[in-house]
Computed example of a mutant assay.
Amino acid sequence: MKEFSHEYAEHWFHTPTPMEKAGGLWPIRAGHNKAKSNYKMGPRMITYYSVHFILDGEGMFTQNETNEKIQQGDIFCLLPNQTHQYSSNPDHPLKMFWLAFNGKQAIPLLKRIGITNYSTHVKGILNEEIIEILERLATHLKKDDEDDDLFGLSIIYKLFHSLSIQSKQKNLAPTTPRNWLQKSQEYMDMHFAENISVKDVAKYVGIHRSYFTDSFVNEVGVTPSKYLLALKMNRALELITEKTHTITEIALSLGYSDLYSFSRAFKNYYEVSPNQYLTKE
């Protein structure tokens, strides 16, 4: 580590590769330190997310007008464009590892480990496995080999996976179960072309079919079967309008067993056959 006025530290700066930037998460910088008695950072802001892992010591952390004591085993997260400040207890100096990153997966990944915009400090989450992963990540980041970006990402995702498991075991993550009706819609939106039935959807969300159907109608306004049909017919219309596929290809791609059953369903829905609609186009 290099000596600075307020700490001993080693910093690793990373320029995300095109492959990393095309994904959901990419590292920006990382490092580790051992604080001196006068250690204090901020008040300041950064433009990315930065999770700090407290390996030893204790101190104070302030963000979003919340002032909290931090200690060994905790993590805290600096949020983009939020004023923060943290300092070390002179009698028990902080020893930390930090990882800064960005990307569209940052928020959902942080949420899995108990960090939100309103709760940026998680107590007692670190264990030996997580610390070992941090050591592997440090070894990788020291090399900063552009051709090894996939390996680096695999370590970071492994880190979040282990943090997520630890968070669940300690009941540290906020409980935000998805509404099963929303879950059923997401399932149908994704798999409507794979010949799924209402019974399949009800089984997927773990609800009795009749109760599922009644509740779906009350919330969405149509039966699940009509919802599935609408998804198929809307997609059929898009494909027919593109004029790049035959009607038979479209029928089979949407889960129909043959052209006849698709054409009948299409005509019942739009009051014209697929060929008639294509002719009008």
Score class of each variant (00 low, 15 high):
His52Val: 11
Lys36Cys: 00
Tyr211Asn: 13
Met41Leu: 13
Trp180Gly: 10
Ile247Ala: 04
Ile240Lys: 09
Cys77Thr: 04
Ser88Arg: 14
Val51Ser: 10
Ser257Asn: 08
Asn33Glu: 02
Lys123Ala: 00
Asn275Ala: 08
Leu278Trp: 10
Leu278Asp: 09
Asn117Met: 12
Met45Trp: 04
Phe53Val: 04
Trp26Arg: 14
Gln63Arg: 01
Ile125Lys: 07
Phe192Pro: 00
Phe76Ile: 01
Asn38Tyr: 14
Asn117Gly: 14
Leu278Gln: 12
Val198His: 00
His208Cys: 12
Ile196Phe: 04
Thr139Asp: 07
Ile115Asp: 05
Gly114Pro: 06
Asp258Phe: 07
Ser257Trp: 00
Leu78Lys: 08
His84Thr: 08
Gly206Thr: 03
Asp214Gly: 04
Met1Pro: 15
His208Pro: 14
Glu271Thr: 06
Leu239Gly: 06
Ala9Arg: 15
His191Asn: 13
Ser119Trp: 01
Met1Tyr: 11
Lys168His: 04
Leu172Met: 04
Glu186Leu: 13
Gly114Arg: 07
Asp91Arg: 14
Pro108Asp: 09
Tyr187Thr: 01
Gly23Ala: 08
Ile240Trp: 00
Ile107Asp: 09
Thr116His: 02
Pro43Glu: 03
Glu7Gly: 13
Glu65Gln: 10
Glu186Ile: 10
Trp180Glu: 12
Ser167Thr: 04
Leu126Thr: 06
Ser210Arg: 11
Asn38Met: 06
Thr246Phe: 09
Thr244His: 13
Met188Phe: 05
Met190Lys: 14
Asn81Gly: 07
Asn268Pro: 13
Glu20Tyr: 00
Gln182Tyr: 13
Leu110Gln: 03
Leu163Pro: 06
Leu78Thr: 07
Lys226Tyr: 11
Ser257Phe: 04
Asn81Asp: 10
His92Val: 15
Lys143Gly: 07
Trp180Ser: 12
Leu163Gln: 00
Ile54Arg: 09
Glu58Gly: 14
Glu186Ser: 05
Gly206Ser: 01
Tyr157Cys: 06
Ser5Val: 09
Ile165Ser: 07
Ala35Trp: 02
Arg136Tyr: 10
Ala202Glu: 06
Ser5Asp: 11
His161Ser: 15
Ile133His: 07
Ser273His: 06
Lys243His: 08
His208Asn: 15
Trp26Leu: 10
Lys34Val: 04
Leu172Asp: 00
Asn171Lys: 08
Ile196Glu: 01
Trp12Val: 02
Met60Gly: 08
Leu99Arg: 05
Lys104Cys: 12
